[in-house]
Design a binder for these strands. Structure first.
Length: 138
DNA sequence: TGTGAGCGT
């Protein structure tokens, strides 16, 4: 339980920024922009308990809005949870309430972090919905 | 055992 304090102090993606000010010559041109992700109805939930399931996610986040879909990412071959998941609300307002209501809170005994999910893939400039799957997953 | 800092089948 001592790790919970370190997690709470880090607060998501703030830990890796501690190394961005390292006194190095002029190697890294200050790359790695810190995009907090643009607001959307899709949320990225991290810090989940390995035993937390998709319905557990949906049940917890449904208290702050209408959850359209919730999923805990699991390994395809092992079936074990990867410790994070995604929750999609009906509206962006509900997504914001979900973040404010669940970010840094406990779920299944673990402190979780809720933030806006990044787009899964960049818009490929133009897409021909034809032939093979546009999702890239057969 | 899936104790990790993670953006998906």
């Amino acid at each position: 339980m001592a790790m919970l304090a370190a997690r709470a102090a880090g607060k998501g993606n703030g830990i890796r920024r501690l190394f961005s000010s390292f006194p190095f010559p002029s190697s890294q041109p200050a790359t790695t922009p810190p995009p907090p992700a643009e607001p959307s109805t899709n949320l990225f939930i991290s810090g989940l308990n390995k035993r937390t399931t998709s319905e557990g996610l949906e049940k917890a986040f449904s208290e702050f809005g209408q959850v359209v879909h919730a999923r805990v990412v699991t390994d395809r071959v092992s079936g074990y949870s990867k410790g994070f998941g995604f929750v999609r609300y009906a509206t962006i307002e509900e997504a914001a309430e979900g973040i404010k209501g669940m970010d840094g809170k406990f779920l299944e005994g673990w402190v979780i972090f809720a933030e806006y999910a990044r787009p899964r893939s960049l818009p490929p400039h133009s897409s021909q919905a034809k032939g093979s799957s546009p999702s890239g997953f057969p």
